[in-house]
Amino acid sequence: MSVINSIDLNQLTDNIKTWGKSLGFQQVGVSDVDLSQHEKALRNWLENGYQGDMSFLERNIDKRLSPSELVPGTLRIISVRMDYLPPDASFASNLKSSSTAYISRYALGRDYHKVIRKKLQKLAEQIQEYTQDLSFRPFVDSAPVLEHAVAEKAGIGWTGKHSLTINKEAGSYFFLGELFINLPLPVDQAVEENCGKCTACISICPTQAIVEPYVVDARKCISYLTIENDGAIPVIYRKAIGNRIYGCDDCQLVCPWNKYAEVTEEKDFFARQHMHNRSLLDLFKWTEDEFLEHTEGSAIRRIGYRKWKRNIAVGLGNQIVQSVEDAENIKSVLQNARDFPDDMVQEHIRWALAEIEQSELQLGKKSVNRKTLSLARSVEKGMPRHG
């Protein structure tokens, strides 16, 4: 009799879920490795070019659809969910203040890749104490893994119309992680789709990136444009980006299921003071050394300094200036950066300067109109009455 045949797999599965929660995961589920039902949708998505410049998504399709080809011997995938919503998320106040930089809430704290991978490693070690016959490999948003499809099969939630996983008791503000293993654990039941007729996420998207339910054209998505995209941000999307300098949460903000989302208990995901509620001007003034220092251990660091400057330049160009003095201040900061050693960044700075100059011109016109109206009223009051 093999070691695996002597294991109480039901008890082990219960143990794994208990161990996972003790490590800080809010939910643990088990999936098999058959993802073939997603092949047609994946290939159609790629054929439409919706992946943009993310060419890595075009490779290893067979491994994405068959996890046992990615990690030979894999029989099950343990899928985990970990909440990331920080205290004082300040969604509305940040988005309404055009001078404040908006960073997607998942990126305000420590890099989730490191946090979750470390916990998955510990979970695997606990399973190994139960049985030495374990072979495993952890993944966190890395390698060719269809994490949302796996989460769906593992009962974590269903894939929403915005293409993210939704849990009816926790919304969608959570990270996913996977542990590939060679044990034939009993699997969980997939969750029934619960979006119904709701299309709020489709309607709210600033760039209309959700081209149909469950299908996102990454080339239009603000998260893609500000993070994955290495080149210039297309002019047609710059105004819609507003003050969002890293990612976008709009489709999640409007989702009715997120009324059940809970604040994370993981302190590593709490917002860092130097990243949260900061003005666009303050962040734009960072030197490259300051950028590297303040983003150490953060997912934001991977976009690099040039894309950081590019994104904030767009945000500054979109800032609603309240006075000519405000406009002059922003122009001064942008002009001082015109010699940035990157043509792509310089182009965005020029665009931002043109936008602010246009706003300044409109302010001047409004000021002249107010003065003219005031003068007219004064003259009118001093005119003799006839009657």
Rank of each mutant, 00 (worst) to 15 (best):
L179G: 02
F180E: 04
I181R: 03
N182S: 11
L183S: 02
P184L: 09
P184D: 07
P184V: 11
L185T: 01
L185K: 01
P186D: 08
V187W: 05
V187N: 01
D188Y: 12
Q189L: 15
Q189N: 15
V191R: 14
E193I: 09
E193W: 03
E193C: 13
E193V: 01
G196Y: 08
G196R: 07
K197L: 15
T199L: 14
A200S: 08
A200L: 11
C201I: 01
S203T: 12
S203C: 03
C205N: 04
C205W: 02
T207F: 03
T207G: 01
Q208I: 03
A209T: 07
I210D: 03
I210F: 02
V211D: 00
E212Y: 08
P213K: 11
P213A: 13
Y214V: 03
V215T: 11
V216I: 14
D217I: 06
D217G: 07
D217Q: 07
D217C: 07
A218I: 10
A218F: 11
R219W: 08
K220V: 04
C221S: 09
I222W: 09
S223F: 10
Y224T: 09
L225S: 05
L225V: 06
L225N: 05
T226I: 07
I227Q: 02
E228N: 10
N229H: 15
D230H: 13
D230Q: 15
G231I: 08
A232W: 00
P234Y: 04
V235W: 01
V235Q: 12
V235K: 13
I236E: 15
I236W: 03
I236Y: 06
Y237I: 05
R238I: 01
R238T: 06
R238W: 01
A240Y: 00
